[in-house]
Amino acid sequence: MNSMERVMTALSYKEPDRVPIFLNLTITGAKELEMSIKDYFSSADNVVKGQLLMKNKYSNDMVTAFLYSAAEIEAWGGEVIFYEDGPPNSGEPFIKKIEDIFKMEIPNINNIAGLLKGLEIIKKLKKIVNEDTPIIGAVTAPFSLPVMQMGFEKYLELIYFRKDEFNQLMKINEEFCVAWANAQLEAGATAISYANPLASPTIVERDTYISTGFEVARKTIARIRGPVATNLASGIALPVMMDLIKTGTKAVAVSVKDNIDEAKRIANKKVAMIGNLDAIDMVNWDKEKTRKEVKELIKKAAPGGGFILSDNHGEIPWQVTENVLLEIAETVKEYGTYPIQVDE
């Protein structure tokens, strides 16, 4: 099976040849090409080269055009800060006053260099991997983007007390999100990773999510013309798993803090599960620990399909070593071959 066949088989709750691996390798590409993170992201060719290299080296079953979350903030006129050893991050929030929300305009994707670079990466990857490997595009959910647009504290005021401003911001964010997701799909992306950490009860309690962000997600995902996988960036998914399924998502990234057995029971044939290796703890892993974690996860989550092995955060930290990533791939090949037979 090639990666596309492997992933599609797993998503349809059948058992492929082995468990598919989605290592969310973004900044690691800079390390592989021995250049700074800023230089790496400055050119589409670097990212294409990095993605293909890492796909082969770590047996990854996807390539991603995701650069960094703050790239979307650049589109809105916000600042991005680069670091030597971590993902670029958004700078000071650019919405200074809540009232400014009514003056905001939706960025035109065709005028934003950073987003055009993302589309160029997808097109170049597509020419090379064709239909053999899924190309994953990415968007930040309209409900979660305001954390970078205006800061969390101001945004909570909107969520709890300023319905008009909340609805207006969701309206323009939804338009941007749909346009950006569909542009990536048109460029050749196979599916969209929909980053919505605020949908997790770790961040926003379920009742509030249901009366605010849930409907936004349902409407937005319905307008995205391709499959969507929801990622809660380490936040727990279990208490809202059924709600996430109702948004139309085809897969859910589960947290290391979720009970994987329970998550599998609820997800069963309704939605595929992606996860849930601990990306933060992975920094401390050695070969033995890596094997133990991967084996345990395969044993619990892989039987019957419907599962893609991945980290739980959506991005492998810079500090995770090459040996750990190689060991993940080796352990999956050894113990993740179907039918699953992991000894006690």
Binding site: L156, Y160, P201, I203, V204, T208
Partner: peptide, 11 residues
Amino acid sequence: EGQLSLSQVYM
């Protein structure tokens, strides 16, 4: 313990 949200803690 995962029973409450960060938003509730903050507010």
